[in-house]
């Protein structure tokens, strides 16, 4: 495991912790299919949330939110379709969110963004 992967995994763990604290129950992590990967799938109030986690160690190369572009969103959408159909619930209420984490030396900031698609 290289340091980039480590950053990602640490970020996802932090995000999962944050979501649990705010009332989400985690349905799955790192859901992989042929279309790509969804970092966290969580349930809150009868809505399935597909959550993309983005972690950066510094904002020197841009905010984490800037790296989620149109193509990434399309990937997430397709993965979500895959998840919903393979779990037999295509008509469930669905939301797409993102957790943006900046891990700097002395402090970590976590930002939760709702409804990133549209």
């Amino acid at each position: 495991m290289n340091s980039k992967q480590l950053t990602g995994i640490l970020g996802e763990m932090a995000a999962a912790g944050y979501l649990k604290r705010t009332g989400y129950s985690i349905l799955g992590k790192n859901y992989r299919c042929i279309f790509g990967e969804i970092d966290i799938i969580a349930l809150k109030e009868k809505t399935i949330h597909f959550i993309e986690v983005k972690t950066r160690k510094s904002i020197e190369f841009g905010e984490p939110s800037e790296s989620i572009d149109f193509f990434k969103l399309e990937k997430i959408k397709k993965c979500a379709w895959h998840y919903l159909f393979s779990n037999n619930c295509p008509d469930h209420q669905v939301a797409f969110d993102a957790v943006l984490i900046i891990r700097q030396k002395n402090r970590t900031s976590i930002e939760f963004i709702e409804d990133i698609i549209r």
Partner: peptide, 8 residues
């Protein structure tokens, strides 16, 4: 308006 992937 229905459940499903959010779209407009």
């Amino acid at each position: 308006i229905s459940n499903g992937l959010p779209s407009f």
